[in-house]
């Protein structure tokens, strides 16, 4: 810390300036999601909501597709006595179901990604795998072509495999999309670990899997966590695959639902309130996940320092 003491002021001045610049659009999104419509669109912008409202959050979280347009009618439809199977009723569920769907897909993607990328990265770095460089180049390929270019062949493939409209289909696609970054990151992480550590463990007779989990992975934690954050980011924020490959209301992903609410029922509508509130709703989980991983970032780094 002493190293920086002479530039103490500069260090914090730069950081706090950046913080203000970077936070501002997010702050603006946040306060806008609490403003009443008349305060939302005005030529005298307010920098904090003078008249707090939770109407957009209420609308999103308890979003009732049948209630949106006809407030009075919903009671009649309850009392009409017609029982429609719960599966086909969409009212009152809000975005809870889409939220769960997105959580499942994200969790699946994270887990599958770290397994596949750790093994792959290890094999392509530490081990003497044949065709190493060729495989590595192959694995990089998915970032080189826009996803939308492959939509139609992918759709056909998923349909043949029976994976359209399923979470598993999305998980596999997202994991495949994570391969370049994941394997690259894991490769860098394993590369920086001295090979002597592995040799010692091998002399002790450990198996390759044992070496990975007990020796190598603890040292590669910053890389691993980064891969997890990215996997979460990629699957949680995905729009195009979730939009195209999911066809039933009960399997809809969060982003799709939020966009539908924000863009409203008609062609040109733009509901700033719902849009901002929706983005905060989709924003929070990933922030919590990141903050949760932060502590391990630090622990991982100090841990490796101790061992060395």
């Amino acid at each position: 810390m002493r190293r920086y003491s002479s530039d103490w002021y500069w260090y914090y001045a730069i950081n706090y300036t950046l913080v203000i610049i970077i936070i501002f659009p997010i702050y603006w999104t946040l306060i806008s999601s609490f403003k009443k419509p008349s305060e939302l669109i005005t030529s005298e912008p307010t920098f904090y909501p003078h008249d707090l409202t939770l109407q957009y959050y209420d609308q999103i979280w308890n979003f009732d597709r049948l209630k949106r347009l006809q407030d009075t009618e919903s009671e009649d439809s309850e009392s009409s006595g017609v029982e429609i199977e719960s599966k086909f009723r969409l009212d009152g569920e809000g975005v809870k179901r889409p939220f769960m769907n997105s959580a499942i897909v994200s969790a699946g993607t994270i887990i599958l990604t770290i397994i596949v990328c750790t093994l792959g990265g290890y094999a392509l770095t530490v081990l003497n795998t044949p065709l190493k460089n060729f495989f590595f180049l192959l694995v990089i390929l998915p970032i080189l072509i826009p996803g939308i270019s492959l939509i139609i062949p992918l759709y056909k493939l998923l349909k043949d495999l029976g994976l359209t409209n399923t979470h598993l289909g999305l998980i596999l696609i997202h994991t495949c999309g994570m391969l370049p970054l994941g394997i690259f990151m894991m490769r860098n992480a394993f590369n920086s670990i001295p090979s002597s550590l592995r040799e010692v463990a091998m002399l002790e007779g450990s198996s390759e899997l044992k070496i990975i989990t007990s020796v190598m992975l603890p040292l590669a934690i910053p890389g691993l966590l980064t891969v997890m954050v990215f996997a979460m980011y990629v699957s949680w924020n995905d729009y195009i695959y979730a939009f195209i490959f999911i066809n039933s209301p009960e399997n809809t992903m969060l982003n799709i639902s939020l966009m539908k609410i924000a863009l409203g029922g008609s062609q040109f509508e733009m509901k700033w309130g719902s849009l901002t509130a929706g983005s905060i709703v989709s924003f929070l989980p990933i922030i919590i996940f990141y903050t949760f991983l932060q502590q391990y970032f630090v622990r991982g780094v100090t841990g490796s320092a101790v061992k060395e």
């Binding site: 597709r65 759709y155 056909k156 863009l263 008609s266």
Partner: peptide
């Protein structure tokens, strides 16, 4: 008969519909 509504919205409807047609959904 039970109808299920897949509300796709106005944005990008024809992207989804075109892909679905091409794949025979």
């Amino acid at each position: 008969i039970v109808a299920i509504n897949n509300l796709i919205g106005h944005a990008d409807f024809q992207v989804k519909f075109t892909a679905a047609l091409a794949a025979g959904e």
